[in-house]
Simulated scan of single mutants.
Amino acid sequence: MKTNKLQTLSEFKDEFYGNIGTEKRTALEEGYQEFKLGALIHEARIEKGLTQEQLAEKCGTTKSYISKIENNVKEVRFSTLQKIVESGLGGKLELNIKL
């Protein structure tokens, strides 16, 4: 049976980009502010072989709204994100807050 090893974002960055202060990690951290949720939705939609219109239909929204989210024109509410991920993409949305 295959097991999934979950990692925190910090663990992932340490493993693939090195420790804080290294050149590769610094480049990542500087570009991290430009990271947007829309890119993740876009990649997942393409991986599933869906058009924006098909994704919108599956999750009960419009193609225009999906486009705006993917292009970072519009922020997405958590409840809408959950519909996109679960109903539209067939995935599971998990939120993890560490203090």
Rank of each mutant, 00 (worst) to 15 (best):
M1I: 11
T3H: 11
N4I: 13
K5Y: 03
K5L: 15
K5W: 06
L6T: 14
Q7T: 03
T8Y: 03
T8N: 07
T8A: 08
T8C: 10
L9Q: 05
S10K: 11
F12R: 06
K13L: 15
D14Y: 10
F16C: 07
Y17V: 03
Y17H: 10
Y17D: 00
G18N: 12
I20K: 15
I20Q: 13
I20S: 11
G21W: 03
G21T: 08
T22S: 02
K24C: 01
K24H: 05
K24R: 09
R25M: 08
T26P: 01
A27D: 13
A27M: 01
A27G: 06
L28G: 05
L28V: 00
L28M: 06
E29V: 01
E29L: 06
E29W: 00
E29Q: 01
E30W: 00
Y32V: 04
Y32W: 07
Q33E: 11
Q33W: 07
E34T: 10
K36N: 09
K36A: 03
G38I: 00
A39T: 11
A39S: 12
A39D: 12
L40H: 13
L40P: 04
L40R: 13
L40N: 11
I41A: 01
I41W: 01
I41D: 00
H42W: 05
H42S: 12
H42D: 06
E43L: 00
E43Q: 11
E43H: 04
E43M: 02
I46M: 04
I46Q: 11
E47D: 11
E47R: 13
E47Y: 08
E47S: 11
K48F: 02
K48H: 08
K48L: 03
K48G: 04
G49C: 04
T51K: 03
Q52D: 05
Q54G: 03
Q54H: 09
Q54R: 00
L55T: 00
L55P: 04
A56Q: 04
A56E: 04
E57T: 12
E57D: 14
E57S: 12
E57R: 12
K58Q: 05
C59Y: 07
C59V: 08
T61L: 08
T62Q: 03
S64W: 15
S64Y: 14
Y65R: 14
Y65W: 09
I66E: 02
I66P: 05
I66N: 04
I66A: 03
S67D: 10
I69N: 09
I69M: 09
E70T: 01
E70F: 01
N71A: 11
N71D: 08
N71S: 12
N71K: 13
N72A: 15
V73T: 15
K74A: 12
E75W: 09
V76E: 10
R77A: 15
R77S: 14
S79N: 15
T80F: 10
T80K: 14
T80N: 15
L81W: 09
L81E: 01
Q82A: 15
K83F: 05
V85D: 02
V85R: 00
E86A: 07
E86K: 06
G88S: 03
L89K: 04
L89A: 00
G90W: 10
G90F: 09
G90N: 06
G91P: 03
L93Y: 00
E94C: 09
E94Q: 05
L95H: 08
L95N: 12
L95P: 02
N96K: 14
N96E: 10
I97N: 00
K98L: 08
K98A: 07
L99R: 05
L99P: 02
